[in-house]
Computed example of a mutant assay.
Amino acid sequence: MLILTIIIMAIGFIGAIVPGLPGIGLMFLSTLFYGVFTQFEKISIGWIVVFGVLMLISFILDYLSSMVTAKKFGATKFGIIGGLVGAVVGAFILNVPGLFLGQFIGMLLGEMFGGKALKASVKAGFGGIVGYILGMTINISIAFFIMAIFLFKTLR
């Protein structure tokens, strides 16, 4: 059971980096199932609660980092919607590089559609990228912490 849980957690860790794959949520569920399966022998209910809280914090901070950063760089709802659409299309076409490029282009076009000048639209697009990188950094940090604690508790 431990090997399967570690494999699922590794997929979740990769998902914290690569869009389209389940990330922190999958890591949390794998620790929960491991805890239930082993009757919380090595991973206590307390740690499961900590992992659950970290998962919620990850979701909230991921959303807020993108939105707040984009707003700080002048993005409007047109840019945010364009960035979201562009990220999905870009990721579908070019995977991770397409995610960044698509988000930038989508936000730029969305801002221009909303009436902003090119310079302001580029600034908003850049803000979207900065916010995404900030959110990804938060997710990777939380994923690393969950994985490290899980491995420490189960492999000793």
Rank of each mutant, 00 (worst) to 15 (best):
V18T: 01
F73M: 03
A16G: 14
V89E: 07
E111L: 03
A70W: 03
F78W: 15
L151E: 06
V96G: 06
L61M: 14
F59N: 08
F92M: 14
F40H: 06
M112D: 04
A10F: 11
G114F: 06
L155Q: 13
G23K: 11
G46S: 13
A117D: 15
V50W: 09
P97T: 08
G114Y: 07
G98W: 00
A87W: 02
S65L: 11
G115W: 07
T69G: 06
G125T: 07
F92N: 11
G23A: 09
L118T: 12
K119M: 04
I11C: 07
F126P: 00
F28R: 09
G82V: 08
D62F: 05
G52Y: 06
V130Q: 12
V49L: 15
I3A: 10
I48H: 08
E111P: 13
G125H: 08
L4T: 13
A75M: 02
V50E: 05
F51C: 05
T5C: 12
I3M: 11
Y63M: 10
Q39W: 00
Y63S: 02
A91S: 15
G98D: 00
L64R: 00
F104G: 00
L54Q: 09
A124V: 00
M1K: 14
F100E: 04
G46Y: 10
L56V: 14
T137M: 15
A143S: 15
F113T: 04
W47N: 09
R156M: 14
L21K: 05
G90A: 12
P22N: 15
G74N: 01
F104S: 03
I8M: 10
T154M: 09
G110A: 03
I142L: 07
G86R: 11
M107D: 10
F145C: 02
L151N: 10
L64Q: 04
G20L: 11
Q103R: 13
M67H: 02
V96C: 04
F145S: 05
S30C: 07
L99C: 06
G15F: 11
K77C: 00
G83P: 13
F104C: 02
A16Q: 01
Y132N: 09
L151C: 14
A148G: 01
I57Y: 04
G25Q: 05
M9P: 02
S44E: 05
V36G: 02
F28C: 09
I24C: 05
F33M: 14
M136H: 02
F40I: 02
S65E: 03
K153A: 14
V68D: 00
A117S: 12
R156S: 15
I81D: 06
V85N: 05
G114V: 07
M107S: 15
G110T: 05
G35K: 07
F51K: 03
A16D: 13
I6L: 15
G131P: 06
V50R: 04
L61F: 14
Q39I: 01
A16Y: 03
Y63Q: 01
I133Y: 05
T5V: 10
V36E: 13
I17A: 14
L64G: 01
I149L: 09
M9E: 10
F73H: 09
G52S: 10
T154A: 11
I60M: 11
M147Y: 11
G106Y: 06
L54E: 10
